[in-house]
């Protein structure tokens, strides 16, 4: 009974979480300190996880939580600390370039929204099948229709791993000819 009151979810939840996503993603690109930037990115990805839960895509919510927030962002944080950047070494662009960048991004947004106005799909997102995003259903699709891409993606990950190790290790001393 108590949990009913606690999880009083209505339509406004989506708009609140959407606002938070936009707010934190703006902070990601404006934060001066790169470490703060990464922490804001973690928060942004957390709001995305909440979006997935609201869409009842539970598998993706968990994968997003573990892979993005757990693995990828820790990798970013480690690299940043390895490189040892701080606020002083942060390169700054001139104001002219900044204004041009914001204008460019804004133009892209205007074009996208203009296209959206043309299409005009205003139907509500209705989940017809509640089990759509569950692991059982996705596993069946993944291992029947998408078995070959799944296997090939393992090859991709292996080659990425080998490539990363090859790139990041120090070059040995050049061979004497």
């Amino acid at each position: 009974m108590g949990i009913r009151y606690f999880v009083n979810i209505n339509m406004n939840t989506f708009y609140f979480i959407a606002f938070l996503s936009i707010f934190f993603s703006i902070l990601v690109i404006t934060a001066k300190n790169p470490v703060h930037s990464i922490l804001y990115l973690v928060l942004t990805f957390f709001t995305f996880t909440v979006h997935y839960i609201l869409l009842n895509a539970q598998f993706l919510a968990v994968v997003n939580f573990i892979v993005y927030m757990g693995a990828i962002l820790v990798l970013f944080l480690y690299t940043l600390m390895l490189i040892n950047l701080n606020k002083d070494s942060e390169p700054v662009k001139s104001n002219m370039v900044k204004i041009a960048a914001v204008l460019g991004g804004g133009c892209l947004l205007v074009v996208l929204v203009g296209c959206l106005k043309q299409v005009g799909v205003a139907d509500p997102v209705v989940l017809k099948d509640p089990g759509l995003g569950l692991v059982q259903n996705l596993g069946k699709v993944l291992f029947n229709e998408f078995l070959l891409p799944f296997e090939i993606s393992s090859l991709l990950l292996l080659s990425a791993m080998v490539g990363a190790v090859l790139l990041a290790t120090k070059d040995p001393k050049p061979k004497s000819v």
């Binding site: 979810i9 989506f14 708009y15 804004g106």
Partner: peptide
């Protein structure tokens, strides 16, 4: 909950965040 959120708003949200990424 989701029954009342139009698809439009999802597209709008994602376009805004994509544009923020481009700006970044």
């Amino acid at each position: 909950t989701i029954k009342s959120v139009p698809l439009n708003h999802y597209i709008l949200l994602c376009s805004i965040i994509f544009s923020i990424g481009v700006m970044g």
